[in-house]
């Protein structure tokens, strides 16, 4: 199956009302690297598909590291070692035989700082599909338009797709980056503090976008902004020192957490 067929199959799949993106099962995940021997310790999480799961915790608690396990971005770190397992549907993410480039087409990622490539808006969104082998202009046009519409950016940029992406506002850039990520039709979207460099209104836009995207994507968002986690997520995991302290429905975590440490953290009594 070539990339074009795969994309079409994926979007048809998504068009089905009963479609639910697959969840992620994390079992006994530990991660070490030379600078940080206890980066993650025995993480067990069952992240449901088609929902937004927030990971909160103090700086350096390992939340970004955990997120980067899901698309094996930690592989770029020197001397990084995993144990345990992470599965996405039928895919064993941590298996050394897993093709990370294929994995990353199923698990997209959005970073803290908007990082559009210094090229046109169109080329940014078309980047992933092109890498995947989509060449026909008509197919690309369609993919680009759909992705920009989903990212709620189409109306703002439709007349200027040839314009350099770096001239967009930060908030628009971040939505562009989200469009770029969903253009390859991933099943999971990882977001690493996606709004921390944005102004409050742009932040709300991103949050609203997250809410709308969760219909068809499993979303895991790392944020140091607890209120943001409260606003956008269905489930929240509180991480501290590489361990999951509490993982529950967001309503529960923010109104009546069961762990003292969680309560201290979300009420600002931490440390």
């Amino acid at each position: 199956m070539d990339h074009r067929e795969a994309l079409i199959a994926a979007s048809n799949n998504r068009a089905n009302l009963n479609y639910v993106a697959p969840g992620i099962e994390v079992q006994g995940l530990s991660l070490t690297y030379p600078d940080e021997p206890n980066a993650l310790i025995d993480i067990n999480l069952s992240i449901p598909g088609g929902e937004v799961t927030a990971v909160i915790g103090p700086s350096g608690c390992g939340k970004s590291t955990l997120l980067r396990c899901f698309n094996r971005m930690n592989d770029m770190l020197e001397g990084c070692q995993y144990s345990g397992s992470i599965t996405l549907g039928d895919l064993n993410i941590l298996d050394p035989m897993t093709d990370v480039t294929l994995l990353r087409r199923r698990v997209g990622m959005v970073f803290q700082q908007p990082n559009p490539f210094p090229m046109s808006i169109y080329d940014n969104v078309a980047y992933g599909p092109r890498i995947g082998g989509l060449r026909r202009r008509r197919d690309l046009d369609e993919v680009v338009e759909n992705a920009l519409r989903l990212a709620a950016l189409w109306d703002e940029v439709k007349g200027q797709l040839g314009k350099n992406a770096t001239v967009l506002s930060l908030g628009q850039q971040q939505r562009l980056v989200i469009a770029r990520a969903i253009a390859v039709q991933p099943e999971v979207l990882l977001m690493d503090e996606p709004a921390s460099s944005l102004d409050p209104i742009s932040t709300l836009r991103i949050e609203e976008l997250i809410y709308e995207l969760k219909q068809s994507y499993t979303i895991v968002i790392v944020t140091h902004n607890m209120q943001q986690a409260a606003r956008v997520s269905d489930r929240t995991a509180f991480l501290n020192q590489g361990q999951v302290v509490e993982y529950d429905a967001t309503d529960k975590i923010f109104t009546n957490p069961s762990q003292r440490a969680t309560e201290d953290y979300i009420t600002g009594r931490y440390g």
Binding site: R104, Q113, F117
Partner: peptide, 15 residues
């Protein structure tokens, strides 16, 4: 070139 561009590209499945 900020490393975020490289990461962004790798995260999209580029080698």
């Amino acid at each position: 070139i900020p490393s975020s561009l490289r990461e962004g590209s790798r995260a999209l499945g580029a080698t």
